[in-house]
């Protein structure tokens, strides 16, 4: 798994590539926490390069969404979610908890 982050004026874009499972979820969480610990709570996660995500990754998303939405200070949104991962998120009932965008520019513009 690989993470890169890019800071925009109104939000941060975190790009995650590869596989997020129980072995790598902690690293994924650390990537998200690096942003929220810096006091930035508007985050778009670009999943276009994501091959796989298990419930360990879903848990990281949920925990981060809670941190971001606290005090209405921000939100975490998902961008370019691959079909298989979207299906699994749907099965887990997670799609209602996250806005999703097909276009990274629209996601950034959402904030």
């Amino acid at each position: 798994m690989e993470i890169t982050t890019q800071e925009f004026k109104h939000c941060d874009m975190l790009k995650v590539k590869g596989r997020v499972d129980s072995a790598t979820a902690q690293q994924f969480t650390q990537g998200l926490e690096a942003i929220t610990n810096a006091g930035r709570f508007k985050i778009a996660i670009d999943m276009s390069g994501l091959e796989y995500m298990s419930s360990a990754g879903f848990r990281a998303l949920l925990a981060s969404q809670r941190v971001c939405k606290r005090y209405n200070r921000g939100e975490l949104v998902l961008v370019s979610v691959p079909e298989r991962i979207r299906e699994a998120l749907e099965l887990a009932g997670f799609t209602e908890l996250f806005k999703t965008f097909d276009d990274p520019l629209k996601a950034v513009g959402n904030f």
Binding site: S54, S55, F58, R59, L62, A63, Q65, R66, K69, A92, L97
Partner: peptide, 10 residues
């Protein structure tokens, strides 16, 4: 969001 349980999902 606030009440969503994290365990049991797997």
């Amino acid at each position: 969001l606030s009440e969503r349980q994290i365990g049991g999902l797997g």
